[in-house]
Simulated assay, not measured.
Amino acid sequence: MTTSPTSPRLVLRADGNPRIGLGHVMRLLALADILRDQFGCVFVIQEPDHVLLSQLQESCSEVVEMPPQPAGGEPAWLAHHVLRPTDILVLDGYGFEFSYQEAVRPYVAKLVCLDDLHAFPFAADVVLNPAGGISEANYDLRQPQARLLSGPKYAPLRAAFRSNSASHTIASPSSVLVCLGGADPTHQTQRVAATLLTLPVIEQVQIVVGSAYTGWESLSQWAEHEGKVTLHRNLPPTL
């Protein structure tokens, strides 16, 4: 999808890798899937691996691989190389604090932040936090007429998880799914699975990891000797 210089675009900014995980990127990918018919989506990311890059290209009309920037230099780079006055910029990540938001806000039509910490003030027009029990009293919203969208009804989910037609089979308590995110940066997957296998009731452990998980080789070697364990890697959402 090609957009004219005056058309509003959704510019999505997040990073994902084995150190920080893939959660921020996956949330924005879900948002891109939801809004792809209304906006041209541009994803800005630093150093994605080839699997993640392919996923981004499937959901977004353009992927910008941003080179590493000096401290505080990223807003200026975005303003010079990516942003347009008609853009809606969406930030998802713990490093996009108030000073960053203030620096990029003048270059776009609207600024949206996905957040689950409410740990600093916000210069965004919209803050989205899908957690329950959150209200504006938890936030310092500095932008005039800023809105907080909170609660599970605002959770950005990909189409396969939004569908009401999905089967609702009640799982057996003897079968357990272990998924500690796309990267599991601290490598807890095997430890959790091994602990579950010590429970007499457990008959099957399904383990799911993503493309950023770096412990695949050792996990595979361990699973070869565990008859109750099945491994899955980088599953599509429609499986």
Results as ranks from 00 to 15, higher is better:
Arg142Phe: 02
Leu12Pro: 03
Val192Ile: 11
Leu231Tyr: 08
Pro67His: 11
Pro152Lys: 02
Thr6Lys: 12
Leu53Ala: 12
Arg13His: 12
Ser220Thr: 07
Ala166Gly: 11
Pro237Trp: 12
Ser211Lys: 05
Leu149Trp: 15
Ile34Tyr: 14
Trp77Met: 07
His118Lys: 11
Pro70Ser: 12
Gly73Pro: 06
Ser167Val: 12
His187Phe: 13
Ile170Lys: 10
Ala14Gly: 02
Pro236Gln: 11
Glu47Asn: 13
Leu196Lys: 13
Thr3Ile: 13
Arg13Glu: 08
Arg191Leu: 13
Asp115Gly: 11
Asn138Glu: 15
Arg27Phe: 07
Asp33Phe: 02
Pro5Arg: 14
Ala79Met: 10
His168Pro: 00
Gly73Lys: 12
Thr86Asp: 02
Ala32Thr: 02
Ala71Lys: 13
Gly40Ala: 15
Gln57Ile: 00
Tyr107Phe: 15
Pro156Tyr: 14
Ser4His: 07
Ala123Asn: 06
Val25Leu: 09
Pro185Asn: 10
Ser211Phe: 09
Arg105Val: 06
Glu102Ile: 00
Gly215Cys: 08
Leu114Met: 11
Gln57Phe: 00
Val90Asp: 09
Phe39Glu: 12
Pro237Gly: 05
Glu217Thr: 02
Gly40Tyr: 10
Gly21Phe: 13
Gln206Ala: 03
Thr195Asp: 10
Ser135Glu: 11
Arg233Cys: 05
Val42Ala: 03
Gln55Tyr: 08
Ala71Ser: 11
Gln190Asn: 07
Leu231Val: 03
Glu136Gln: 15
Pro75Tyr: 14
Ala146Asn: 05
Leu219Ala: 00
Val127Met: 06
Trp77Leu: 04
Val209Met: 12
Leu35Phe: 15
Val205Trp: 09
Gln221Glu: 14
Glu65Gly: 06
Gly93Trp: 09
Ala14Met: 10
Gln101Phe: 06
Ser167Lys: 14
Val42Phe: 01
Ala119Ile: 03
Leu56Val: 01
Glu74Leu: 10
Gly40Arg: 07
Ser7Thr: 07
Gly210Asn: 09
Phe161Glu: 08
Gly181Ile: 03
Ser59Trp: 08
Pro152Asn: 02
Pro68Phe: 13
Ser4Val: 01
Val112Phe: 10
Phe120Ile: 01
Leu157Arg: 15
Ala223Glu: 04
Glu136His: 14
His80Arg: 15
Gly151Arg: 09
Ala79Trp: 05
Glu217Lys: 07
Val42Arg: 03
Pro70His: 07
Ile45Arg: 07
Tyr107Met: 05
Gly227Lys: 01
Leu199Asp: 02
Gln55Pro: 00
Ser99Arg: 08
Val178Tyr: 06
Leu35Lys: 13
Ala159Thr: 03
Val178His: 04
Pro200Glu: 04
Val82Gln: 04
Pro8Ile: 07
Val201Cys: 04
Val201His: 10
Pro173Ile: 00
Lys153Trp: 11
Val11Asn: 13
Leu111Trp: 00
Lys110His: 14
Asp33Thr: 02
Val229Pro: 02
Val25Glu: 11
Arg162Pro: 03
Leu22Gln: 10
Thr189Asp: 04
Thr2Pro: 00
Leu29Met: 15
Arg84Val: 04
Glu47Trp: 06
